[in-house]
Design a protein around this nucleic acid. Structure first.
Lengths: 235, 235
DNA sequence: AAGTGGTCTAGACCACCCC
DNA sequence: GGGTGGTCTAGACCACTTG
C-alpha cells in the first residue's frame, strides 16, 4: 500500500474514531508530517484525495476541517466500485434474471468499441439493498475480458469477481444519466407502475489500458434510491 | 494564473486545435517538462487535473491519451460553475419568476447553517437552453453574503455576479439527487403534465471559508436535460 | 508576526509497457 | 533495456488567516 493511501485511510479512521463532526478541525499538515514521518507532498496528496472524496476541506491560513455531510441512505455517485462496497453496514443482494452469451448489437458494439456480432456476456440482475428493490441492471461484457460468469458469481459482487479473480484493472468510467418514464416490463420488475419516473444510467467502464469492457444500463427505483455528489471547486 | 493551470489550459487547447480524437496520444511528460520549462511535479499536477475532468487518461509505461467521450447536449455534473459557462456555444437564458426577501424556514436555516427567521434572498427562475425549458430553480441566499440581487442580474448568470461582482469565493458544494413525480404547479411551469418524471436536486454551496451561502432546489425537465459524469478510479 | 495551506523545484527511485 | 508514468523527498517561497 502506498504511503499516501495509508495516510488517507488513517485520517479517515481518525475522524471516525474521534467521532469528529462537520467543521471540526484536524491536525495541521506539519503535525501530520511529524506523525507519519513523510514529506509534505505526501501529506498534501493524501489530503487532496480526501478532499475529492468530500471528506474534508482545507482553508489556507487556517486549517483542515471535516466536511462529512453524508445524509444516510444516499449513494455516492463518485465511487466507481459498484454498490457492494459502498454500504458498509448494508445488506446488498442480487437476483439474477438472465445470463446469456450474445452477439453485440449496434449500441453495445459502439459502446464496447467492437464489431457488431462479436461475442458478449449479457447479465441481467435485480438488485436489492436492505431487502428493498433498488435497480434493474443490464450489463454487457466483452467476452475477451470476461469469458465466464455464473449465477453464483452474479448473485454476489461482480465487481469483486472482476478485480479479484479475473484481475481486471479498472481505469475510468463514463456515466450518462437520463430521467424517463418506466416501460411496462421494467415497471413490473421494480414493482412499480408503467409511466412511473425512473433514473436510467448508461455506464461504460474502461480497463486500465483504456479499453472498454463493460456497458451497463441501470434503471433505478425512484422511491428507494437517492444520490449524493460532492464537488470541490477545482482550480 | 498558476503554472499548472496555464499548462492544463494549453494542453486542452492543444487537443482542440490539433483536433485530437479519443485514444490519440499526447506528448510525454518529459517532452512537456521541456516545452514548458517546469519541473515534473507541475506537469503531473496539470495532468491529474485534466484526468479528473475526464479529458485524458494516463497509462503507466505507455503514455497519455485523449479521453473526450463527450456526448453533445449532456451536462457535465462535475463542473461547479452553474450552467452558463458549460455550454460554450449555447444560448442560455432565464426568466425570473420571483425575487423576495424572506425569513429562513427550517429547511433553509438548516441548510445554510443559520437560525430560523434569519433573512435570506429567494430567487425563483425558469431556465432555458437554446430556447428550450430546462429547469425550475429555487435559490436561497444568505443575505449576509448576498445582500442584493435584481431582475437584470438574475436573468443573466448569478454565478458571474457572485464571483465577479460580490467577489464570493466558492469552495465546495454538496448535491443530493432524487427522482420524483411532478406536482401540478411545477409541471405547469415546465409545460409538462402532473406526475411526469423529474430529477430534483438539492444543492448547498459553500464559500471558500466553509460557510454555506446558497441552498438551491432545482427541478429538471426530463426530456430536455441529460447528464454526464466522468469518473476515474482513484487510488 | 506566527501559523497554516498551496505551489513549485530538482532529483531519486519504482512500476509498468513494449520492443 | 529504454521509455514512460507514479510516488516520494527536502526544502524554498508564496498566499492567506488569525491573534
Amino acid at each position: 500500500m502506498l504511503k499516501y493511501e495509508e495516510i488517507a485511510h488513517n485520517i479517515e479512521r481518525y475522524i471516525r474514531e474521534h467521532n469528529l463532526r462537520q467543521n471540526d478541525k484536524l491536525p495541521s499538515t506539519e503535525e501530520m508530517m511529524n506523525e507519519y514521518q513523510v514529506s509534505k507532498s505526501t501529506i498534501v496528496k493524501a489530503l487532496s484525495y480526501l478532499q475529492q472524496k468530500g471528506m474534508i476541506y482545507q482553508l489556507r491560513g487556517s486549517g483542515i476541517f471535516v466536511r462529512r455531510t453524508n445524509r444516510k441512505g444516499y449513494i455516492n455517485l463518485f465511487e466507481n466500485q459498484g454498490f457492494t462496497s459502498l454500504f458498509d453496514y448494508s445488506n446488498v443482494s442480487a437476483k439474477v434474471l438472465a445470463i446469456e452469451e450474445l452477439g453485440a448489437n449496434e449500441e453495445v458494439a459502439e459502446s464496447l468499441n467492437i464489431a457488431v456480432g462479436e461475442p458478449v456476456l449479457y447479465v441481467k440482475r435485480l438488485r436489492y439493498i436492505e431487502e428493498q428493490i433498488f435497480c434493474v441492471e443490464e450489463s454487457y461484457f466483452n467476452k475477451m475480458t470476461v469469458p465466464y460468469v455464473n449465477k453464483e458469481i452474479a448473485e454476489q459482487s461482480l465487481y469483486q469477481y472482476l478485480t479479484n479473480v479475473l484481475k481486471v484493472k479498472i481505469g475510468y468510467s463514463d456515466k450518462f444519466l437520463h430521467v424517463i418514464k418506466l416501460s411496462e416490463q421494467v415497471a413490473q420488475l421494480l414493482e412499480l407502475e408503467k409511466d412511473d419516473p425512473a433514473l436510467l444510467t448508461e455506464e461504460i467502464f474502461h480497463k486500465g489500458n483504456g479499453e472498454p469492457f463493460n456497458f451497463s444500463k441501470i434503471t433505478y427505483h425512484y422511491v428507494n434510491s437517492q444520490f449524493y455528489m460532492a464537488s470541490v471547486e477545482m482550480k
